[in-house]
């Protein structure tokens, strides 16, 4: 019952957002919440103008978490994100001015436009959850989540994220165009940026922290564990794939499944949870064989999953 109430708070978040503000973006919203609950990061790959930023803003608004935004460009320096020490003339010493990364939810817009140096500084911060500037280590707030976006079509003057960096994102997903009917409504109603910026928080920070603990406590049975392991092993044996999923990927898949189960109101992971989230968690981590680079990775993961029987008993 306790669990139900906690879950209820989050499903409520969901319902409010997808019904009132972000029609047609339930999936990306759900994945964002999963990333938030697990303490991972999300990379949204899609064309501009489909509401990537709006989703991040809305999520921040509804959870009452602090929000920072970085618009990545090729001349963006690491210190522009992490912050820097500025000499305070009145007090006579350097004082640290925290950058936008010192927020609970950080939107890194068009992450592939920044230089590799900046990218790696950001990704290091994402992994370590702390920033060291001039010998002083500053911890990042908790919960902390990076909401990165990248534009797959416009590749000129961009620096693609290397595979090792992609592995640090828990989830990578697209948004896609809204349904026809829905899009007409959105067009008629105009943008919702204004609305989103005035959102009232529906959950508190402490509730989120408690929910994160509950997600860790979700039961993962041996059967489902074997199922996850089978998926991972299959990617390593697959003909089209050069390197399969890492152990970190497997851990992430298990964690994301737990969060998905939590959101579905259960205290145990069902194979369905794994199956539903596997593409988002796994596809971007695969390194395809050089001649197969253009293959749809999501499709490969889906065929692998279809070939493995769900443990029903």
């Amino acid at each position: 019952m306790k669990l139900f109430l906690k879950t209820h708070a989050f499903t409520n978040v969901f319902d409010v957002l997808s019904r009132d503000y972000l029609q047609g973006k339930e999936e990306v919203l759900r994945l964002s919440v999963i990333a938030l609950l697990v303490g991972g990061h999300i990379l949204v790959e899609d064309l501009p103008g489909l509401g990537k930023t709006t989703v991040a803003l809305a999520l921040a608004g509804v959870t009452g978490l602090s929000f920072g935004r970085v618009q990545c460009t090729s001349d963006l320096l690491p210190s522009d994100i992490t912050g820097l020490s500025i000499f305070n003339r009145e007090e006579g010493h350097f004082s640290f001015q925290p950058g936008p990364i010192f927020n609970n939810i950080v939107l890194l817009d068009e992450i592939n436009r920044s230089m590799p140096r900046t990218q790696s500084a950001m990704l290091e911060a994402m992994e370590e959850r702390r920033v060291t500037i001039e010998g002083v280590t500053y911890p990042l707030p908790d919960p902390f989540m990076v909401f990165a976006t990248q534009n797959p079509s416009d590749q000129s003057g961009t620096f693609l994220l290397p595979e090792s960096q992609l592995d640090r994102f828990l989830i990578c997903t697209g948004i896609g165009y809204p349904e026809e009917q829905l899009e007409r409504q959105i067009i008629a109603g105009g943008g919702i940026r204004e609305l989103v910026s005035n959102l009232m928080p529906l959950v508190t920070s402490s509730e989120i922290m408690a929910a994160k603990n509950d997600v860790q406590a979700v039961y993962l049975s041996d059967k489902v564990l074997s199922y996850i392991h089978n998926i991972v092993l299959s990617t390593r044996r697959h003909d089209l794939i050069l390197t399969g999923l890492s152990t970190r990927a497997a851990i992430n898949l298990a964690q994301a499944s737990k969060a998905a189960a939590f959101l579905a109101g259960r205290d145990y992971v069902a194979p369905d949870d794994v199956k539903n989230i596997a593409v988002a968690v796994c596809a971007h981590r695969l390194t395809m064989r050089s001649d197969m680079n253009t293959t749809d990775r999501g499709g490969v993961i889906r065929t692998i999953i279809a070939s493995i029987a769900l443990p029903l008993a």
Partner: peptide, 30 residues
Amino acid sequence: GGVGLFEIALLADNIHVSNFVKIYAGAVYH
């Protein structure tokens, strides 16, 4: 085993089916 139990419950859209899945999966996946 190509379809998960909860997927079945979703597809069937029947109260008995989802009740069954809830009870059964609650035991088995524990």
